[in-house]
Design a protein around this nucleic acid. Structure first.
Lengths: 205, 205
DNA sequence: TCATATACTGTAAAAATATACAGTATAAAT
DNA sequence: ATTTATACTGTATATTTTTACAGTATATGA
């Protein structure tokens, strides 16, 4: 899709807002009033450009004959966008803006359990569980995990996605790949923070 | 809500259909054309009645200034719910109500490509591609598939999810599990219908 | 039988609207 | 230095559209 100029973006947004508020598209004059133009031709020209670039359709001869093909704000408005966070070597997989690779429009209730973000899988340690590199694992932020859950754990200088098993002071983080070995942690010696657990997975083919 | 007369119901439906098809409301004349009236006043009167009864709002002096307050159809647009269809042994994985196991709230644009439904995977034939039993594969209805795509194909008495490979008259449907064998079809002898292709996958943990 | 509501036709005019044409100004690209 | 793209103003006009007014016809209830 072609890029829009600053003013074209404004006009497109104006049309969308008007449409949302009134239920029908604005006239040239109304766009002018909204954006401070003094000539209906200003709006006309921007609309023509938007049509040429494929964002809207204009029915010639019809009043308010504007229909939106590709919305700019579509994503921001169409409900929730779940952030995707890369599994970085160290540090919490926080929701800070700098860690968010992108956002995906979807419903946080699409799985049985609600979730907060997607974690992008790196490496092959869970391949035998059918979790591939670059799969997105839906993570629910919680510390309430049981043995056997697939959890995100932050160690001293590492964040990892593994199966959880805890007995007394021994925490085991078990991979699903025979080429990788279980991480064993004595909780009296080393800290381990459970960041959350997986409630689902999505993959883009 | 007040009852509508037969003609008022027609006019309201006409406005809704026009709005869905074009993105903006119809003029009086367009309603007349659609419903066979010969005077714009016929439409006008019905619109006034609809406004009085609280079904629509008319912005006086504005062309196409009709907005719908209360739809008759009560479209079930409570956020999009994507249907989940079981991979049944025979017959098309149609969207007929009886085939829908459940619906999942999510955005059909969450993957790179739009999709139409989820197919619930049965069996282990794609396990080496990390596609497990009961995974939900997002299917886009299309016949435009390329070699290597993961496709839903309907054969004579079977619907299957496999990798697609076609050369001349030979269609190969390739599993991702060494314990399963490739289905080979001579298209001159047997029909095969491509129902769609996978654009993503989700799994509930 | 008479009023009332529904359901229109037909016409016309005022107002809203799209849209063409002729310009101006500015910044970036060639 | 000149072209090109963006971004407008200002005016004018043909067309679209709303909307009022004057009728006709039919069924229903009082």
């Amino acid at each position: 899709m072609k890029e829009l100029t600053k003013q074209q973006t404004k006009v497109l947004a104006c049309v969308e807002v008007y449409l949302n508020q009134t239920g029908f598209p604005p006239t040239r004059a109304e766009i002018c009033k909204e954006l401070g133009f003094k000539s209906p031709n200003a709006a006309e020209m921007h609309l023509r450009a938007l049509e040429k670039k494929g964002y809207i359709n204009i029915k010639s001869g019809s009043s308010r004959g504007i229909s939106i093909i590709k919305s700019q704000q579509e994503y921001e408005q169409s409900g929730l966008q779940i952030p995707v966070i890369g599994l970085v070597a160290a540090g919490s997989p926080t929701l800070a803006e700098e860690n968010i690779e992108k956002r995906i429009p979807c419903d946080p209730e699409m799985f049985a359990d609600q979730f907060d973000y997607f974690l992008k899988v790196k490496g092959l340690s869970m391949i035998d569980a059918g979790i591939h590199e670059d799969d997105l694992v839906a993570i629910k932020k919680t510390t309430d995990v049981k043995n056997g859950d697939l959890v995100v754990v932050r160690l001293e200088n590492e964040v990892t996605l593994k199966y959880f098993k805890k007995k007394d002071h021994l925490l085991e983080l078990i991979p699903a790949n025979k080429d990788f070995s279980t991480i064993e942690i004595d909780l009296r010696e080393q800290e381990a923070f459970v960041e959350g657990k997986s409630v689902g997975l999505i993959r883009t083919h």
